[in-house]
Lab assay of single mutants.
Amino acid sequence: MKVMIRKTATGHSAYVAKKDLEELIVEMENPALWGGKVTLANGWQLELPAMAADTPLPITVEARKL
């Protein structure tokens, strides 16, 4: 699914347009965010693609819901 990742004042957030859902990312498998699992505030887990740590945000990526 397409997910937009952006930086907020409190960390990172994910927006899933198909579900009209925006949630804070509360847990990251990798400190650089990319190439691992993230957990959203509502409990969803997404697998993000591997990208460079300095990838500019906001960005829309293809993520997989676990």
Score class of each variant (00 low, 15 high):
M1Q: 05
V3C: 03
V3I: 11
V3N: 00
V3M: 03
M4Q: 14
I5Q: 00
R6V: 10
R6E: 03
R6N: 10
K7E: 08
K7P: 06
T8N: 09
A9K: 11
A9M: 10
A9C: 10
A9F: 09
T10A: 12
G11N: 03
G11V: 03
A14L: 14
Y15N: 06
V16L: 14
A17C: 15
K18R: 12
K18H: 15
K19F: 15
K19H: 15
D20E: 11
D20S: 10
D20V: 07
L21W: 13
E22Q: 08
E22G: 06
E23Y: 15
E23F: 15
L24P: 13
L24M: 13
L24V: 13
I25R: 01
I25A: 00
I25D: 00
V26A: 05
V26N: 03
E27Q: 12
E27G: 10
M28K: 11
E29I: 04
E29C: 06
P31W: 08
A32Q: 14
A32M: 14
A32C: 11
A32K: 13
A32P: 05
L33I: 09
L33C: 07
W34Q: 03
W34L: 05
W34I: 04
G35R: 02
G35E: 05
K37W: 15
K37I: 14
K37G: 07
V38T: 01
V38Q: 00
V38A: 00
L40T: 00
A41L: 06
A41H: 06
A41E: 08
G43F: 05
G43N: 03
G43Y: 04
G43P: 00
W44M: 09
W44P: 01
L46R: 00
L46V: 06
E47A: 11
E47C: 14
E47D: 10
E47N: 07
L48N: 00
P49G: 06
P49R: 04
A50S: 11
M51Y: 06
A52T: 08
A53F: 11
A53M: 10
A53P: 13
A53S: 11
D54E: 09
D54I: 06
D54K: 06
T55V: 08
P56Y: 07
P56T: 10
P56L: 10
P56F: 07
L57F: 12
P58V: 04
I59N: 03
E62F: 15
A63W: 03
R64F: 12
R64Q: 10
K65W: 15
K65D: 12
K65Q: 13
L66W: 09
